[in-house]
């Protein structure tokens, strides 16, 4: 297991990184925690000519409150997110999602920016970002721009980022008072990538569903919203039957899930329905539903 040779750069500021990336050719790769990129280098599935390691850019490692949301620097490790009291108290759905990522060793190095930029369709962070409608701050030699989660994930392992773009921050809005949430997945073993998972936010007014958002992951080329299932819920009296039929809608709504040696496409579709029903039930209870 040996990567092919490459040039290595370790800028200490974001400005330096951005100007380096602007100068180098398109075969350059950004390195963050390395937990996706280094296995790919080791297997020679990636052969960049140069790496720009962001690891020394301390200004990209932070978690802070930011008018009604939580802003997290791209270089913040999954472990730091997991241990943040602010995240645990104010955005428990992000904490729960982080706990589902891999193992201690991986979370100790893997970064939130790397997870989002890598955009594995079965990964947790892209799904939470879509569930909460996070904003992505991006810097390149030509300036700064913000991309919404709905436009960020393009297809399998592909985002709206160009080769010279640095993701610098992700900003999660907080959930409004009374909104229930759930984030769950099915894996073969603890810490594996999800075979299928679901994230849900839901709000109730009286017994009626006034807001519902459902994101499924592991079942398509990117995390996907189940808009038909959301629509089937809103304005209706919440009941076990309604949840079961919304889950059926979500299951039918997805395209053709991946089939591999971990699970068949049909099994992933089945799991998507099961995860949706469980997540809706848990989120509704957190929103005060008594069934």
């Amino acid at each position: 297991m040996k990567p092919a040779p490459f040039d290595y750069h370790d800028p200490e500021t974001l400005d330096e990184a951005v100007s380096l990336l602007g100068r180098l050719d398109d075969d350059v790769k950004i390195l963050a925690g390395g937990q996706s990129l280094i296995p790919l280098l080791n297997m020679r599935l990636a052969r960049p000519t140069a790496l720009v390691d962001l690891g020394k850019i301390a200004e990209l490692d932070y978690i802070r409150e930011d008018n009604g949301g939580i802003a997290i620097g791209a270089l913040t490790t999954q472990r730091t997110v997991e241990r943040s009291q602010l995240v645990k108290d104010r955005l428990p759905v992000l904490y729960e999602a982080t706990r589902l990522i891999a193992h201690p060793q991986i979370r100790n190095r893997g970064t939130i920016g790397g997870s989002l930029a890598h955009a594995d369709p079965a990964a947790e962070y892209p799904a939470v970002a879509l569930l909460l409608d996070a904003d992505f701050k991006v810097r390149s030699a030509s300036g700064e721009r913000t991309i919404g989660a709905a436009d960020f994930f393009v297809t399998y392992l592909t985002t709206a980022l160009g080769p010279a773009d640095v993701l610098t921050e992700v900003r999660f809005p907080l959930l409004a008072e009374g909104v229930g949430w759930s984030f769950i997945e099915m894996t073969r073993r603890h810490g594996d990538f999800a075979l299928a998972g679901a994230g849900v936010t839901i709000a109730l007014s009286g017994g009626e569903c006034s807001h519902a958002r459902i994101v499924l992951f592991g079942v398509d080329a990117t995390p996907v919203r189940s808009k038909a299932a959301e629509q089937a819920l809103v304005g209706q009296e919440l009941s076990e039957e309604l949840i079961a039929s919304a889950a059926q809608t979500a299951r039918d709504e997805i395209g053709e899930p991946l089939s591999d040696n971990h699970a068949s496409s049909e099994f992933r579709r089945h799991l998507a329905g099961v995860m949706t029903a469980r997540a809706l039930t848990e989120a509704a209870r957190r929103a005060g539903w008594v069934n």
Binding site: L31, G34, Q35, I38, N42, D53, Q105, R109
Partner: peptide, 21 residues
């Protein structure tokens, strides 16, 4: 995990860290 080391107090897999890091 066979390659686990502790770097700056954190457990890591040393096959997934480059020497320059």
């Amino acid at each position: 995990g066979a390659c686990s080391m502790i770097v700056d107090g954190r457990l890591i897999t040393s096959c997934c860290m480059l020497a320059p890091q």
